[in-house]
Design a protein around this nucleic acid. Structure first.
Lengths: 186, 186
DNA sequence: GTCTATAGTGTGATAGAC
DNA sequence: GTCTATCACACTATAGAC
């Protein structure tokens, strides 16, 4: 891993743990072992490095989601696979947490990957739900509800200090969904 | 409103907008019009003032929830009233957002009101759900799922820059719930 | 109770040597 | 590419006068 990469990975880690406002260039340097001058050689400043880090995290989220969605089975089984996938619940969502960062939301460049990630994920899920539910219920409203369960589950888990609530929330959501799943042909 | 109160109200506002890490004592002083010395007379420091602000916000959240829950009607109607209640969606949840603040979660005193608020809300909702659903589905898992929809809805709305997604997520969740509501005796 | 002064540390970046 | 030096400003307080 070269210097540039180490900076991005450290930024990703710290952004995840402490957010944009809570992460200083100095902290990134200390975490990565890269010096001041070196960092400013590779990136114009904190926002530039953060953008690279956010983009990489967004890409990773998408890839991991696609892996779960590619599980063999019915659409409902593929949705379930995604929701039950392993997660670092207590650390929260590396993209979702940025939503609470005033400086990220205020900067269109930093905000864009966050916005696009959720638009993509919600759309992807809506398609699967449309297949799974076959008009028993509105996929266009159900998709954001499900994504919200995941994101809100992180909030509850962090508040409680335990991953259990996230699991329960997912169980609850899938439990509700189950009753609407088209019984045949999937 | 006296000086102490003005400080608490300003801290509440800024904590809501910028979080704990992103809010400086100086900013609170500027926002409230209270001087440096005055602030440190009334509070021992930033954590002390933040605690007062968080406690007040937590109390307010509870009171507002109880107002909605007290709506006349069936348990499902009371739950619906709570979920459809007016919200400053794009500002997010003043308590839920603290969950992403590393310094809040690291301080047991600051964290406690956050934890208790969600424990209370989830429990309250579980009781109403148990009445509304009458064992058609597990209220113990459904309650955190619903709270998560609310919290996650804020995340989606902020990411999208529009309150619509929050509304859709709530619609989706209530739509799923509707099919399980006990049809008589409520 | 409120004010001003002061202080030590951190932030985010620039400059220029190597 | 990487290093050290330096900078102007912000952060979070403390001290002591009024």
């Amino acid at each position: 891993m070269d210097t540039r990469d180490r900076l991005i990975e450290s930024a990703r880690e710290l952004l995840w743990e402490r957010g944009y406002v809570g992460t200083s260039p100095k902290a990134i340097q200390a975490h990565s072992g890269v010096g001041q001058g070196s960092m400013y050689h590779h990136f114009t400043g904190k926002p530039d490095l953060a953008l690279a880090a956010i983009n990489r995290s967004a890409e990773e989220l998408r890839e991991r989601a696609e892996v779960a969605f590619a599980t063999p089975g019915t659409p409902f089984e593929r949705i379930t696979a995604y929701f039950r996938r392993e997660r670092e619940v207590l650390k929260g969502c590396p993209i979702g947490r940025l939503t609470q960062d005033p400086d990220v939301m205020a900067d269109p460049e930093l905000r864009k990957p966050v916005q696009e990630t959720f638009t993509w994920l919600t759309g992807r899920l809506a398609d699967l739900l449309a297949e799974a539910l076959e008009d028993t219920v509105d996929a266009h409203a159900t998709a954001p509800a499900l994504v919200a369960v995941l994101q809100g589950g992180y909030v509850l888990a962090r508040a409680a200090g335990s991953a259990d609530v996230h699991t329960r929330a997912v169980d609850g959501a899938l439990g509700l969904l189950a009753g609407y799943v088209a019984k045949e042909g999937n």
